[in-house]
């Protein structure tokens, strides 16, 4: 279903990235290329390094060795989290993390694409345009009714959606989604898959997921991680037939 795209730019380029914690190698010379406009799913058993990979890309963890580039020549390993976020890389965490004491509306307001210099936030005004933008995102994630409630009192699924909404409103170039459907009902999972496919039309998305049905419904290129390195790459059917993959992951 993916029509061959024009020769794409590598948007995200990881080469030989190694991260070790107390002798345990979470990433072992991992190399990965994600192209502009691509939707990519990453699977792998627990401890394969999926979350650590995201930590490295978003600046939470510094690699011990290797290079991490965004577009051409932006070395992510030298920037901190907020600088990376301002390049247009957004992340959704495994556990939904919204700001519990802020309202749903305020959660989205903070995520608006905007100048994020702290000095500017002192004098920032909520223009009608921005208010409308927040309203439309609220509608899209189905939380229009809950705009004024503190995010802490949302249900688990609603928090996941709010978090996706927060990524949505920022117009990111690259989205990293860590288990976006964990803890969701089947119906919510379907809706999320649709939302992600919709989002993927105009941006690059990397999804880490355990749920095979969900991965299949995305129908995207799959990368299998194992022990901190790429084990196989290709369509879901292709990797599911790879004997090494079956051995370490699917064949358990």
């Amino acid at each position: 279903m993916n029509t061959p795209r024009l020769p794409a730019e590598p948007l995200l380029y990881l080469n030989g990235v190694t991260v070790s914690f107390d002798g345990f190698r979470a990433l072992n010379s991992l190399s990965l290329i994600v192209e502009e406009g691509e939707l990519r799913t990453i699977i792998g058993p627990n401890g394969a390094g999926k979350t650590t990979m995201m930590d490295v890309v978003t600046g939470k963890t510094r690699p011990d060795a290797g290079e991490v580039f965004f577009r051409r020549g932006t070395d992510l390993s030298r920037l901190d989290e907020s600088e990376i976020a301002n390049l247009g890389i957004g992340r959704k965490f495994q556990r939904p993390t919204v700001f519990e004491n802020l309202t749903v509306f305020e959660n989205l307001e903070l995520s608006l694409a905007d100048n994020r210099a702290i000095w500017r936030t002192l004098f920032a005004r909520l223009t009608p345009y921005r208010r409308d933008r927040i309203g439309s995102v609220l509608a899209r994630i189905g939380l229009s009714e809950q705009g004024g409630t503190p995010a802490g009192s949302l249900s688990h699924g609603q928090k996941q959606w709010l978090e996706i909404g927060m990524l949505l409103i920022h117009d990111r170039t690259l989205l990293l989604l860590d288990e976006p459907v964990a803890g969701m009902t089947d119906r919510e999972t379907e809706e999320t898959a649709e939302l992600i496919l919709d989002l993927a039309k105009d941006r690059t998305i990397v999804v880490v997921e355990h749920d095979m049905a969900f991965v299949r419904s995305l129908g995207a290129k799959v990368t299998v991680l194992h022990e901190g390195a790429v084990l196989a790459e290709g369509s879901l059917d292709h990797v599911q037939n790879d004997p090494r993959v079956i051995e370490v992951y699917l064949g358990r």
């Binding site: 939470k60 989290e81 919204v98 519990e100 210099a117 936030t121």
Partner: peptide, 14 residues
């Protein structure tokens, strides 16, 4: 105050 690292990932300098 709620989630410091999340604010960073939103692009604000904590």
């Amino acid at each position: 105050r709620d989630a410091e690292s999340r604010v960073r990932f939103l692009g604000y300098s904590v």
